[in-house]
Design a binder for these strands. Structure first.
Length: 530
RNA sequence: UCCCCGAUAGCUCAAUUGGUAGAGCGAGCGGCUGUUAACCGCUAGGUCGUAGGUUCGAGUCCUACUCGGGGAGCCA
């Protein structure tokens, strides 16, 4: 066997049970080749008796080549007993025994579970280093996978070498091996991903992003990168952040004393985008079905568990499409990604179901399997007016639905997602298509229990005359949107789309109560730390 | 932005309706242990968010501010 110091550089190819021989592949791009080369005859393989998995990454950290760091997720699930592997991670708890050995629970973020390392006092640095380990230290461990006599784990690891890479002073390290409130962890956002909850949120968020791309890519949607800086200042979606290079203390001024934006970077006032929709429409009206997936900015002074100043939004846009198909897509899309996340992150989802919200798995399963309710706004108002409820805001046709109304519909009346369509034109933006009744527009909102509006969408107004009338009615200058109206002037086409709040989707899927806990570094009024 | 609640040890909280602060966890040390949020013992650790005010005396009452949480609005 390799001794503890050369990290697998031995080439003696013995036949230890469970060892797998394979060629090295230090480029992550060569995974397929490497896996294939594992089929080579043993004699042709010059490399160490190391377990090789597609997820293994070369340990470029060390100068000794031929080492690969195996993910703990793989060790726990796939690596067979007897194999020697190298893992790296951060200690969660260390239970030291003065008698002879220590148990180290190590987590590397690849999965919810930690692997238990048994470190014997025979190790060279046992007294000097291992017996002093505390929560949060980073380690590289070389050892053999063995069956675990303890409960709750298939295997554990007997360390052959424990390299202490970084210590964490227990006196000051904020992440104690105990329960912390989310409020406290928000103040330690750079370290909170070392907890079970935030590790799981990060994995689910990443998986969810992948599922969303998969959904659209596999259906022929084109991914469009719409600009983050915009000059459109009145899309009606909220307050905008200004983008400028002017000195706030001494902005250039014109003869009349007004701020002279012609001297600003873009020679005009510019802002961070509140939506990529208008630009996405232009791509849809030449390339068919498209989607955006990127950050969005709202300068609204919103202080709620459902609002961020910077959040991510997904906005599909489809040509030759009406409201019904738009709603069909929204429903199919949500079902698909919720079923997908249950399938892709089972242990993280079990964690959320056990520790965060005991109903999430049932809820997501139910959503994936049963049809959404679809009602018109008019019908929704009827239901609310008949409801035996003391409304803080009595429902009435022409007034937008309040939070209490949305929750009543999703949580009391239907107990599932509800798609509400055909809102009064007076409460919806200019670009939504005016219906034949002249009073409503082809809008749809998807409401879900607890979160409320998760999707807002519409069939777009494709008739030039109606569009310009509606712009004028909302005191907009159509000239500013000449490129948008051009779509209706040249080869106009019915089209529709919607916007999905990414963080609200993750909130719903995980049961996390506060949106600030499902984005790495939340930006909210008076808060832009990290 | 509006309404409500909160701020006490590193973290989570308590302090009998004004009499100069306690617990659990965490940490340090010791003991014990195939342990797994281990267990047992000892020790250290706080000018009670900030600034004023009332009072012989304020963690406790009053005012303002800051920060945090919940609800509402705006929305995704």
């Amino acid at each position: 066997m390799a001794n503890g110091n050369d990290h697998g550089n031995d080439n003696d190819n013995d036949n230890d049970k469970g060892m797998v021989r394979c060629c090295s592949c230090f480029s992550p791009f060569a995974v397929a080749v490497a896996v294939a080369s594992c089929q080579l005859p043993v004699a042709s393989c010059q490399l160490p008796r190391r377990y090789h998995l597609p997820n293994a990454m070369p340990l470029s950290y060390t100068s000794s080549m031929n080492i690969e760091r195996i993910l703990i997720a793989d060790v726990l699930a796939n690596v067979e007993v007897g194999a020697e592997v190298t893992i790296g991670g951060w200690t969660r708890t260390v239970r030291a025994s003065k008698g002879g050995f220590s148990f180290i629970s190590l987590n590397d973020g690849s999965c919810m579970d930690c692997i238990q390392i048994v470190a014997d006092k025979a190790l060279a640095n046992y007294e000097s280093e291992i017996s002093h380990l505390t929560t949060g230290c980073s380690l590289l461990i070389d050892g053999v996978v063995v069956e675990s006599p303890g409960k709750g784990q298939r295997v554990e690891m007997h360390a052959k070498e424990v390299r202490v890479i970084g210590l964490a002073d227990a006196e000051t390290y904020p992440m104690q091996a105990k329960r912390h409130t989310f409020e406290f962890l928000r103040t330690q956002a750079h370290l909170r991903t070392r907890t079970n909850t935030f590790g799981a949120v990060a994995r689910v968020r990443s998986a969810m992003a992948g599922l969303i791309h998969d959904y659209f890519q596999s259906r022929g949607f084109l991914y469009v990168h719409t600009p983050l800086i915009t000059a459109s200042d009145c899309e009606g979606a909220g307050e905008l952040f200004r983008v400028t290079t002017m000195d706030p203390d001494a902005p250039p001024r014109d003869d009349a004393g007004a701020i002279d934006y012609s001297q600003d970077f873009f020679s005009r006032p510019t802002y961070l985008t509140v939506s990529g929709q208008l630009e996405a429409e232009t791509y849809a009206c030449s390339l068919g079905n498209v989607y955006t997936f990127g950050p969005t900015f709202r300068a609204e002074n919103s202080n709620t568990p459902r609002h961020l100043a910077e959040f991510w939004m997904i906005e599909p846009e489809m040509a030759f499409c009406d409201l019904q198909t738009d709603a069909d897509l929204a429903e199919d899309f949500l079902k698909n990604i919720f079923a997908g996340i249950l399938n892709k992150c089972p242990s993280d989802m079990e964690f959320f179901n056990k520790r965060i919200d005991k109903t999430v798995i049932d809820t997501l399963t139910h959503i994936a399997e049963s049809p959404f309710e679809r009602i018109t706004y008019t019908k929704a108002i009827e239901i609310l007016e008949k409801a035996d409820c003391q409304w803080q805001f009595p429902p009435a046709w022409g007034i937008d639905l309040q939070t209490e109304h949305e929750r009543y519909l999703t949580e009391e009346t239907f107990k599932k997602p509800v798609i509400i369509t055909d809102y009064p034109s007076s409460i919806k933006p200019f670009y939504m298509r005016l219906s034949d009744d002249g009073k409503t527009v082809a809008a749809m909102d998807v409401l879900v229990p607890k979160i409320g509006e998760i999707i807002g969408g519409a069939q777009r107004e494709e008739r030039l005359d109606v569009l310009t009338e509606r712009m004028a009615a909302q005191s907009m200058d159509a000239e500013d949107y000449w490129w948008y109206t051009d779509l209706r002037k040249y080869g106009t086409v019915p089209h529709a789309g919607f916007g999905l709040g990414f963080e609200r989707t993750i909130q719903f899927a995980t049961g996390m109560a506060n949106i600030r806990d499902v984005i790495p570094y939340p930006r909210t009024p008076r808060s832009a730390d990290f």
